[in-house]
């Protein structure tokens, strides 16, 4: 943590960056995102097991972008987020300084995004064990059982859109749920409409999900919606042998076609 703080301080002192997005101590034992703009504040940066939020979500937020040149404290899912956002032209390559935190919790000073790619080749995050088990359990269900499971699970959703807002990949200016000509998905919370909303979101995340789990973590009702996007990552991995956000050279899996792509899904 000391090396992270030292680096942050130095970046702000040298005016190499204007703001560092990192984790701060929050209220009631929580941590929350902090926006460090002076060298003196670098002390406030922390990193521990509680620091799970994918801070990459702030890289496309207008009021944060206005702060100037940014650096970001980046555990592995955030690193992957930076690479996807770069590929998807939301940020410019090497424009955001990445203060990496490795899988082992060590600070990684990346000079350029190519270094991140190198690191990620053998340090990619996996789904947590309990999520893996749940996904296995759900995958083993019959179609009817699975439908019932999601129907029941998504029923309490109040459509507060915390899942979408927490997701760094959900940066659309106008989300499909807000498009009303035609109205694809109902505005209100309703049993089938909730399923439509979450399945649609999962589809849009297929091949783009970094596995941060923030969608599920942010749900005020504790609905495990991240299992949907996690499962999508598994499907993409099984079918195309790719993981999202490991490189800025390759477009996301579902927006590319390769001659050797499996086409077994076409029946």
């Amino acid at each position: 943590m000391d090396s992270l703080r030292r680096k942050a301080q130095q970046l702000l002192e040298s005016k190499e960056v204007d703001c560092i997005i990192g984790y701060n101590e929050g209220s009631s034992g929580n941590v929350h995102a902090g926006f460090i703009t002076t060298p003196g504040q670098a002390e406030k940066l922390i990193f521990d097991d509680r620091c799970k939020q994918n801070l990459g979500v702030y890289l496309t937020k207008h009021e944060v972008m206005r702060l100037g040149k940014l650096a970001i404290v980046a555990p592995v899912p955030v690193m992957r987020t930076v690479l996807i956002l770069t590929y998807e032209c939301q940020i410019v390559e090497n424009s955001v300084k990445v203060l990496g935190i490795g899988l082992d919790g060590q600070f990684l000073d990346f000079n350029e995004y190519a270094d991140i790619e190198k690191y990620l080749t053998d340090h990619c995050n996996e789904h947590p064990e309990e999520d893996k088990k749940l996904i296995e359990k759900i995958s083993a269900m019959s179609v009817e059982e699975r439908w019932d499971f999601w129907h029941e699970t998504l029923k309490p959703c109040i459509k507060c859109f915390a899942c979408r807002q927490a997701c760094p990949m959900c940066y659309c200016v106008r989300c499909q749920v807000e498009c009303n000509q035609p109205q694809w998905i109902p505005v209100q919370s309703s049993e089938l409409g909730n399923m439509e909303w979450h399945f649609m979101r999962a589809m849009h995340l297929a091949g783009r999900c970094t596995g941060c789990g923030d969608c599920g973590r942010s749900c005020p009702l504790g609905i495990p919606v991240h299992l949907l996007t996690f499962k999508m990552s598994d499907v993409v991995l099984d079918n195309f042998n790719t993981k999202a956000g490991l490189t800025i050279k390759e477009p996301s899996t579902l927006s590319t076609y390769k001659a050797n792509d499996k086409e077994t899904f076409i029946r």
């Binding site: 979500v57 937020k61 009021e63 507060c160 927490a166």
Partner: peptide
Amino acid sequence: WVTNSLRCLGCGACAYV
């Protein structure tokens, strides 16, 4: 308001509960 809401994600969780 700007300083204290930089981390606000703009969801409706607070309002709905």
